[in-house]
Structures are given as structure tokens and as C-alpha cells.
Design a protein around this nucleic acid. Structure first.
Lengths: 256, 256
DNA sequence: ACTTGTGAACAGATTCACAGCC
DNA sequence: GGCTGTGAATCTGTTCACAAGT
């Protein structure tokens, strides 16, 4: 097995940190906006502001791609747009399929930013026979039975799952068996997939819960600042070790 | 222990790492499923598998919340559901507004997982006067003019932005001015907000671009393993230092 | 015997701060 | 003078491995 070194940073300029990869699309968007306004060059400071990050981070990120700037001047906008696009693999067109054309699937199909940047909706797939043939966003919906054929005929390697949670795992298995190796999952489930398949998930309720956590904390600090006590009735003593409510403690959530 | 120390880990059990917070909703979902199947206890190993993480990470995460397990046995499902819910602030109900009732906004409004877990759609808001009064997901859409009043009357602190990119910044400013302190942004823009306001973003095209990056890399490694050359025409020499195409290099993207 | 809880080691990401080049 | 590129320092997160508790 001399191949497939997925872990080590390889020789050198390969092995861009994951955190950097996740920011490249952000930079690309900001650069595209500058390009449309025909701005020729931009400093790390300006670009960082536009992308919502700090400039040291941006420079470090770019340093993984190569030395694409000019000291004392900044970065050439067009040049960088090309380099980042290439690094992200957007100089080629990726056909994607969307499975599950409910409200969300339809919204995704209609989303413009799709086509604009290297992606093409190759097909819409839904399990409901009544949907078959109906056009959504100008593309006729096809039945799940056709899934394997569609994937193969179009050389699709990226699939978007927008089905109900219950169907997602099975859909992912069919996609993968047919040749898909990257999945964007909107269904609120953990997908289990074989080694080598990438999954990214987008989950509304998780995001809201994270916001709620911080929101609650803000309320608590505010109250503390004003002199009120933060934790009124529920447990959690102040002692460092040996907490844990023994048993009379789970208040009105459902248990016995 | 004066007031509002937002940065240091405080005395002790405050200061749950951000990465842990982001996983709590995942654990909660897995636990809820177990709870529905009336499973009384679960080991870190089992729960970790269900949540798609490894067990050491899960135990470490839980250790930030307190000692809620029993050695040799595992965790009590109901008890943990309650503790995590409380930690996330889901024992109270959070009213949220959705601004921008296009395809996506409607999909979000219809999304069930919303109401189920501590969130309540208090209002739908859209700038199109033609939408006003129309019910979406059983809730009548209200006009943007009412935004401030709606936020204040309902004590909304979490807003969801599903408008086009161009409107998002302005909408966020109005939400914040009216009292919102957490925003979930689906518009493909960087929002700039004052200190103390939390923003999380969900961006389809960023996720796809990250997948494309890995997809491209897979294709490259495969080719390399098979003996083919990875980088056919474009630049990027192999030399370690002193790269950067001097000027005849930007191939057919748009520049001069 | 089994599983949690956690220090300690490790790995990854961010920030600092400045040398190097325009 | 101004701005990039990057080592070094720092911070955050993950994994290991085992002592402690049931």
C-alpha cells in the first residue's frame, strides 16, 4: 500500500490544514466581490476584514497555498481567485444530485449560488411517485428507482441528502454503492459511512441549540452582574468534586 | 468572583469548551432516541457510537458538566437528557423569528425539529407586501415594518435570517437594534455585528466547496497510485521555496 | 470485572512579532 | 514606509492510559 497517505502532510505544500480549507471559500467569496468591482489588489488587512477573520490568520492560510502576495503591495485579486478556485477544485464542474425534494430540497434546488460556483444540479430525486416528472427549479424530479443509473450516467460523486431523518442512512448507502464519495447531509441523523467517504452535515436544530446555550449564559451573566442569583432551584452545588444528585433530582422532564 | 468574566474558565465547572458545547446537541439527540426506546442506562462506548464520536471524547465532554455517570455501569439516560437539556438552556422555550420567507425560509418554518426541542417560531417576517397575511406552516407572514414590534412584544432573542445576501446585513442590524442577541444566518454573507452578539452561519456553497476540495484530492491520489500524473497543465512547480508564477501564469480565468 | 473520570501527552489551530522584501 | 511570510509562543482540542469507584 504505497498509496493513500491520508494522514501525514506529505512532502510539503500538500497537506493544507482542515481549518484553512474551511476558510478558503470565504476568502474566495470576498475576492469574487472585489473582482466584480474591478479592484486590482488587496492587502491582507482589507481582505481579512471582508471575510470576517483576522489578518494574521489569513496570511498564514495563504502561506499554505504558496507565496502569492507581493510584500509592500498585497495580493493580486484575479490571481488569487484563480489559485483558490483551483485549490478547491472549482475549475472543474461538479455534478451533484439532490435526494429528497420536499420543502428543503426544493429550496436547495432553487438556490442560485449552486450553479454559479462550480456545481451543477445533475438531478433531483424523490421517493414519492407523484413527484416524478414534476419540474422543480426547471429540473424534472426523478424517482428513487433511477438513483443508481443517474449517479453512474452522470458521473456524480457528490450527493446532497434532504430526506427525512428516517430515510437518510439508506439513501446514503445507495448513493455510496453507486459511486458517490462525498455527502452533504441535511437530515438530522448521524450517517455511518465507510472509510474514504466524506460527510458534512448541516443541522438547523444543532445550530439553534448552540445559540441557546450562549444566550442562556448571557442571561445568567447579566443577572449575576445585576446582583441576582443565577441558579435558582435546580441542583448543581458549588463543591468542586463529588457532585451528582443521588436520585430525588430529575425534575419534571418525563421520568418516573 | 466579581462579574462577567467571559474569557477565563472561572472558578471551575463554568467554561465548557466550545467544541464540547457543539457536541452536546448530538449527544442529546442520541439520548432522546434511547429514551424513547425506554433504555435505562448507556455506556460511554454505546452512546459514543450512536453519536458518531469516540468514547474518550464523550467522557471528557461529560466530565465538564459534572460527574453524571456511575463507574462500572454507565449513564442514566433520563438523567443525562435532563442535565444536557438544562445546560443547553432547553428547559425554557426560546421564541425565534424567521426573516425572509422564500423557499428556504418556508422550508425552515415547516421544519418539525424546531418546535420539538425548546424552540417556538414566534413569527415569520418578509419584505414582500404580497406575502403579508399569507399563512406558511400555519403561521401568517408579517411585513418587515412590524419587525421591531414583533421582537419586542415576543421577547425574541434569537433570529434566523433567510433573506437574499443583499438584505442580510441590514436585517441583522434591525434585529439587533430591537433586542436580538443571537443570529442564525443562512444568507451567504459575512455579517458584521457588535460585540456580544452571537452569529452562526449555515452556508450550502461553502460546504460543497469543502467537499469538492476533498473530492479533488481523492481523485488526485487515486491517479497518483495508478501511475498517472496529477497536475497536467497548470502551474505550481515542485521547488520548495520561491514559487509564484511571475506573470505569464494566470491561465484563462478573466485577467488581462 | 467493568466503566467512568481525568491527569498527562500529543496534535492542531491561532496569534504574536518581526525579518525579509518591495 | 508598508505589507507579506513565517518561526516561535500560545491556546484549544483530542487521545492515551490508568487510577478510582461500583
Amino acid at each position: 500500500m504505497a498509496t493513500g497517505r491520508t494522514h501525514r502532510p506529505a512532502t510539503r505544500s500538500r497537506g493544507i490544514p482542515e481549518a484553512t480549507v474551511a476558510r478558503l471559500p470565504l476568502y474566495l467569496r470576498a475576492l469574487t466581490a472585489l473582482s466584480e468591482r474591478s479592484v486590482p489588489t488587496v492587502s491582507s488587512e482589507e481582505l481579512a476584514a471582508a471575510a470576517g477573520v483576522n489578518s494574521a490568520k489569513l496570511r498564514k492560510d495563504f502561506s499554505y497555498l504558496g507565496s502569492y502576495g507581493t510584500r509592500g503591495v498585497g495580493y493580486d485579486v484575479e490571481y488569487l481567485v484563480y489559485q483558490i478556485s483551483r485549490e478547491l477544485g472549482l475549475t472543474q464542474d461538479w455534478p451533484v444530485v439532490i435526494v429528497g425534494i420536499g420543502n428543503l430540497g426544493a429550496a436547495l434546488a432553487n438556490y442560485g449560488g449552486f450553479a454559479s460556483r462550480g456545481f451543477r444540479v445533475a438531478a433531483l430525486i424523490d421517493a414519492d411517485p407523484a413527484m416524478a416528472g414534476k419540474p422543480v427549479a426547471g429540473i424534472p424530479v426523478q424517482h428513487t428507482d433511477e438513483l443508481e443509473k443517474i449517479i453512474k450516467d452522470n458521473g456524480v460523486s457528490i450527493g446532497v441528502i434532504a430526506t427525512p431523518a428516517g430515510a437518510a442512512q439508506q439513501v446514503s448507502e445507495r448513493l455510496i454503492a453507486a459511486g458517490v464519495t462525498s455527502i452533504l447531509n441535511f437530515a438530522p441523523t448521524v450517517l455511518s459511512v465507510p472509510e474514504g467517504v466524506d460527510v458534512r452535515k448541516v443541522d438547523l436544530s444543532i445550530e439553534l441549540q448552540i445559540l441557546a446555550f450562549h444566550e442562556q449564559r448571557k442571561a445568567g451573566e447579566e443577572a449575576a452582574g445585576a446582583g441576582a442569583d443565577v441558579s435558582p432551584p435546580p441542583l448543581r452545588g458549588g463543591a468542586a468534586t463529588n457532585r451528582k444528585g443521588p436520585d430525588g433530582d430529575v425534575p419534571a422532564v418525563m421520568p418516573a
